[in-house]
Amino acid sequence: MNRQIEGGGVTEAQWAASSWLQTLPRASATALFGDAQRLVVVSPHPDDEVLACGGLMALAHQSGLRVMVVSVTDGEACYPDQPAWSPERLRTARAAELDDALHCLGLSGAERISWHIGDGEVTANEAWIAAQLGAVLQRDDLVLAPWRFDGHPDHEAVARACLQACNECGADLKEYPVWGWHWLDPQAAPTAWASATRVALDDALLDRKRDAIQQFVTQTGAVEGLDCDPILPAAVLQRFERNYEVLIG
């Protein structure tokens, strides 16, 4: 697989035309959560968790599960050539955006951990992250982590660390794609994501998730002083504004 994150990527129209995606097995929230006592969502950068599984996080809270959000980096390196948006400013801004997004999802009281690993430096800290997760995770957790072949080095390193920690403690693990939607050929998805399922989001929850996504203004470009294309243009956001979310595993 050529895991390159560049250009416009696969369009939402191409994914919408995928008969595999449209007939993907459905999993209820009850079946997904099973006997888990806590949902732990591990995110490489603030926004990945809300984009890929914000609806599931809200459903977990509604189901009575405790929710923990782990931010591995602060996402401060997304605009290296933008003087108005220095790493220092982005650290503060992206943390505040995540606060606002979680509030939209009814998750203001969720437990939060931030490790402040350098954005783009996750691979070098993979063993440390796995060890920290080992100290945090419990056997009755359901852990959501990035897809291990997502195409972004930070995502893939977090995925490997989560896999190691879950194997050691016995916690259940599911993976969520973020950039996989960008580069994966929909015709290859039935093989790459053979164990995938989809969880439906009702209209009210989808509206809340869309509101949550819009809180990431530095990523959508809804800020002054950004003299480049945003990380999350409309064509990318479409992948995360569907009335369902996809998990692998």
Results as ranks from 00 to 15, higher is better:
30 T>N: 11
31 A>L: 08
31 A>N: 10
32 L>S: 07
32 L>Y: 01
35 D>R: 14
35 D>N: 12
37 Q>A: 07
37 Q>S: 10
37 Q>K: 12
38 R>W: 15
41 V>M: 02
42 V>D: 04
44 P>A: 06
44 P>I: 06
45 H>E: 01
45 H>T: 01
45 H>Q: 05
46 P>M: 03
47 D>P: 01
48 D>T: 04
49 E>Y: 00
49 E>N: 00
49 E>T: 00
50 V>H: 05
52 A>Q: 08
53 C>Q: 04
57 M>A: 13
57 M>F: 06
59 L>F: 02
60 A>L: 06
63 S>W: 03
63 S>T: 07
63 S>V: 03
64 G>H: 11
64 G>K: 11
65 L>G: 02
65 L>A: 01
65 L>E: 02
66 R>T: 02
66 R>L: 03
70 V>M: 00
71 S>Y: 04
72 V>L: 02
72 V>R: 01
73 T>D: 02
75 G>T: 01
75 G>F: 00
79 Y>F: 12
80 P>I: 06
81 D>N: 09
81 D>H: 12
82 Q>V: 01
82 Q>E: 06
82 Q>F: 01
83 P>Y: 03
84 A>Y: 15
86 S>A: 05
87 P>I: 02
88 E>I: 05
89 R>H: 08
92 T>P: 05
93 A>D: 06
96 A>W: 06
97 E>S: 10
97 E>W: 00
98 L>V: 02
98 L>I: 02
99 D>W: 11
106 G>R: 13
108 S>C: 08
109 G>R: 10
109 G>Q: 11
112 R>F: 05
112 R>D: 12
112 R>E: 09
112 R>Y: 05
115 W>A: 09
118 G>Q: 12
120 G>M: 03
120 G>H: 06
121 E>S: 14
121 E>N: 15
124 A>M: 15
126 E>Y: 11
127 A>F: 14
128 W>T: 10
128 W>Y: 13
130 A>W: 07
132 Q>G: 06
133 L>C: 15
133 L>Y: 15
134 G>K: 09
135 A>P: 05
135 A>T: 10
136 V>I: 14
136 V>H: 15
137 L>M: 12
138 Q>C: 09
140 D>Y: 11
141 D>H: 03
142 L>E: 14
144 L>T: 02
144 L>P: 02
147 W>H: 12
148 R>A: 15
148 R>H: 14
151 G>K: 11
151 G>A: 12
152 H>P: 11
152 H>M: 07
153 P>G: 10
154 D>Y: 08
156 E>W: 03
159 A>P: 04
159 A>N: 09
161 A>L: 13
161 A>F: 12
164 Q>P: 08
167 N>K: 13
167 N>F: 08
168 E>T: 12
168 E>F: 13
171 A>G: 07
171 A>E: 05
171 A>D: 07
